[in-house]
Structure formats: C-alpha cells, structure tokens
Computed example of a mutant assay.
Amino acid sequence: MSSLDPLALDPNADVLVSPGYLAGPGGNRSIFNSLDLAPGWTKAVAFGTDTYYTSPCQRVRVANALESFYGGWTISYAEDPLGVPDWITTFDRNTPHEIVAAFTGTLVEGVHNNFADFLSGGRRYTGISPASLTARHRWEPVNGTRPFRTVSPDGHATYQMSVGWLHEYDELLTPEKSTWRMSAGPDPVYTPSWQAFFSRYTPQHLIAASTAVFTDPTPVPRALDQVPDRHRSLVSVARADAAGPGPRAAAALARSTQAQAIHVPPPLAAPTALATHVGSRRQR
C-alpha cells in the first residue's frame, strides 16, 4: 500500500489505514447492526445514551455504556442467567470497531446452541488459537516478561497472557486483572491508546475471532480525521479506490457478520501450545 502525506489530504477524506489497530475506533454501526438484527435478542436504551442487549437464552448480556469508566463494550456470559458471570470481556471506547464486531458477530452466531458448533467436534471448529495467529503474522514473544506477551513487528501492539494463580472472581471484578489482554498505541504496554480484556473462561473461538482482525495487516477504511493524532506518524495511509464503494460503505460490508465468519484463516498444523485457552468451567 502506498503511503500518503496525511497533511496533504482533506481531513474528511476517506482513506485506507494500516495497521488497523492504530486506525482509531471508527464508527460502530456494524456492531449495533449485528446485535439489532440478531433473532430473538432484546434491546433496551437507558439514560438516552446507554444501550443494552440480552440474548434469547438470557445468558449473554452486552452493554454499550458510553459514560462508564471504559465507555466501550462489555459482554458477559452466565450459565445461570441470575448467577455470577462465567466470563466477561471488555473493549474500551477506543478499540477499533472491527475488533469488537468480530467478537460480537461470532458471539451472535454461536450462542443459540451454547457455542457447540465452534467447540471441538463442531462443524465450525477450527482449533485456531490467538497465539497461532500472532505467530502467523510474525509477532515476537518477549521472553522473561510477566505477564507473558507477544508484540507486533512494528512494536505498537501487544497480546498478553497473565501467568500464575489468580482468583477467577478478581478478574471478573477488575478487567485489568484479566487473563488475556490486547492493546495498541505508541507504547502499547504502559500507555496504550486502547485495551481489550478477556477473562479466563472466555471461549477461545471468540478471542480468536477478535485476534484474527487484530493481527490482520489488511488496511481498514476510515475518514482521515478518525485516525488519532498521536498515531499519524505510525500508520500508512492510502487513498480509497474511487472505483469501488467508499470506505464508510465498505466498512459496513466488509466487517459484517457474514464477512467475519470467513475472516479467520484456516487452522495451522501445529498451534503454539502456550496460548491454549481454558474452556468455560461449565461448558467443558
């Protein structure tokens, strides 16, 4: 992809940005669409700004609470709809929407039968782990770190795994203590521009869906003014193809639930053992 001088473009120009994890959050319409169109899901709006979704089985709750501490998307699953969640995932307000949409789209597709299609033996099981995806895109493990992490080739994104014992309820209460974390920015470890947290029992196929987008080098569509100022010197920007749909329209199409279903690469022969996720204690 050819790189352009962002200063030479109209701030409202539609462009393609790489890497996607530095492109900014962009619009979140595709996330709302996948949930709005999900059969049987209910939706409630509170305080005029906060949106909440509940799955037909009442086990999954999805919240987009704009004024909350993280301000992005929180997803929880509880085998007992009135019980303590089995797992919680949090995407903060600055997480690129493509990463969130991959998670929620895959969630909607699988929750009707408790993700059986995506588990071992299911018709959509791939066995892909997040570690196999980071390895495929030549992310480097950082040895001797706690938590353990792998870093993108440009050094501006990281996927990390906490090691050692942690009471499961601690990570349910405090996202920063979650077993798995994605983050990106000029300094993705200590001052990340955005973070996503996955507690220990979050199903592997859901994390892998987000990781596939997180690690994908394919440019993502944005309006130029949606790219954070602190990322302008770190990204490559190209004009959108005038012959095709504009990036705003392309984003809605390319990141739809159907597109996400085929976005994850085929399984590797030997996934990295370190990233084997523990299945839900109630789904094993």
Rank of each mutant, 00 (worst) to 15 (best):
P228C: 10
R136C: 11
L206H: 08
R200Q: 02
V163S: 09
Q160A: 12
N94E: 10
A63R: 04
A8H: 09
F103R: 04
D36E: 15
P141C: 08
M1K: 13
G71H: 06
L37E: 14
T126V: 02
P267N: 08
F198H: 00
V163N: 13
Q258P: 05
L172W: 02
P153Q: 15
V62T: 00
N28R: 14
P217T: 03
V213H: 04
R93N: 12
L107Y: 03
V213Q: 10
W73P: 00
F32H: 11
H231T: 01
D86P: 10
G244R: 14
A242L: 15
E168F: 07
S129H: 10
A131G: 14
T257N: 09
A242C: 11
E79L: 02
D229Q: 02
S55P: 08
F214E: 03
R61V: 01
K177A: 11
L4N: 02
A135D: 15
T257I: 12
D154P: 09
L9H: 00
V189I: 14
R93P: 05
I128P: 02
S18H: 05
A131Q: 13
H277E: 04
L22Q: 00
L35Q: 03
T90D: 03
A275K: 07
R149L: 07
H97F: 02
D80G: 02
K43E: 12
Q160E: 12
S2V: 10
P141A: 09
P130T: 10
V213A: 01
T126S: 13
S18Y: 06
P267V: 05
P39S: 11
V220K: 04
E140I: 15
R93C: 02
Y169L: 10
Y159P: 11
P265G: 06
L35P: 07
A46M: 01
Y53I: 07
G20I: 06
E67Y: 14
N143E: 14
L274S: 06
Q58K: 15
A8D: 12
V220F: 06
Y52W: 04
F197N: 06
A65D: 13
E168A: 08
P85R: 05
T54V: 02
R255W: 13
A63K: 12
H277Y: 05
L166T: 13
R149M: 10
A275R: 04
L268T: 14
G72H: 04
G144S: 09
